[in-house]
């Protein structure tokens, strides 16, 4: 199992310089190829910090992250990160935004034809071929988020790290994007770590749900889901699991609050 994982985190501790408390303490994760793991937890628990560590954007205070068995030092060309904000560059067309970064020095060298092919495939995968020459100002929120996803896909990632990428979208667009993500994972075989505070999103999209809680944050629960996708009809099974997750989360919050009140007593 260990050798089979694409991304592996062991004993991650993160403490920002000068901060009194750690953000993360002793977090482990082994991500299998093609697996979708959702990191679920209340707002402000440290989910985004964890994702930054997994993506090589932030070095952990201690612990290791390995990509394909090799220690991760900084950003890896085959780990793509999508943020809650699409972060499209307003002066570039959608097409150029998707291609952005492919020709950077630290990315694998590609011929112009290969780059074009990748950009075309990525744009087609998210269904935006009709809008490729538009500028971000002309795109809706959902289209912009699709474009940001295409920018990740153009790098042919082995691991996709998604930091609440649908958090700012309306319900309908959000549901469309969730469907799209399932399709992308099925089509490309990429593994994904999805950060969310939405239990339903986690239930609909994940092979595994990791619940993050406490301060400093650590794993307080884990569930493996073997239901097939799409899961729109699996209301009963998901409902039971939903209550289980909620209970775990509530208990953790209660324990933490009583810790806090002890501390101030």
């Amino acid at each position: 199992m260990e050798s089979a994982s694409v991304l592996q985190a062991r004993g991650l501790v993160l403490r920002y310089p000068g901060a009194a408390k750690s953000v993360l303490s002793g977090f482990d994760l082994a991500l299998a190829p093609g697996e979708v793991v959702t990191i679920l937890g209340p707002s402000g628990v440290g989910k985004s910090s964890l994702l930054r560590v997994l993506g090589g954007l932030q070095a952990p205070t201690s612990g290791t992250v390995q990509m394909d068995g090799a220690p991760l030092r900084g950003v890896h060309p085959r780990v793509a990160v999508a943020f809650q904000d699409p972060s499209l560059l307003p002066w570039l067309t959608l097409e150029k935004n998707v291609a952005f970064g492919l020709d950077f020095k630290h990315q694998p060298a590609l011929s112009r034809a290969e780059r074009e092919a990748r950009v075309n495939d990525a744009i087609a995968e998210v269904g935006l071929s009709h809008a490729r020459r538009q500028h971000p100002a002309a795109l809706s929120g959902g289209m912009a988020q699709r474009a940001a996803l295409a920018r990740c896909l153009a790098r042919r990632p082995k691991v996709l790290l998604l930091d609440e990428p649908f958090g700012a979208l309306d319900e309908v667009t959000r549901a469309e994007m969730q469907t799209l993500l399932l399709k992308v994972v099925a089509d490309t075989g990429t593994a994904a770590v999805l950060i969310t505070h939405d239990i339903d999103e986690a239930l609909l999209l994940s092979d595994r749900i990791v619940l993050l809680g406490g301060a400093p944050a650590r794993q307080i629960g884990q569930w493996t889901l073997s239901l097939p996708f799409p899961r729109d009809d699996a209301v009963e099974e998901l409902g039971t699991l939903r209550i289980e997750i909620l209970t775990t989360l509530r208990n953790a919050v209660r324990r933490q609050n009583s810790d806090v009140s002890h501390a101030y007593a």
């Binding site: 950003v75 972060s87 970064g101």
Partner: peptide, 12 residues
């Protein structure tokens, strides 16, 4: 966010 993006793409 633009600078974060360029960092996440390993820009020099």
């Amino acid at each position: 966010r633009w600078l974060q993006l360029s960092r996440s793409l390993a820009a020099t």
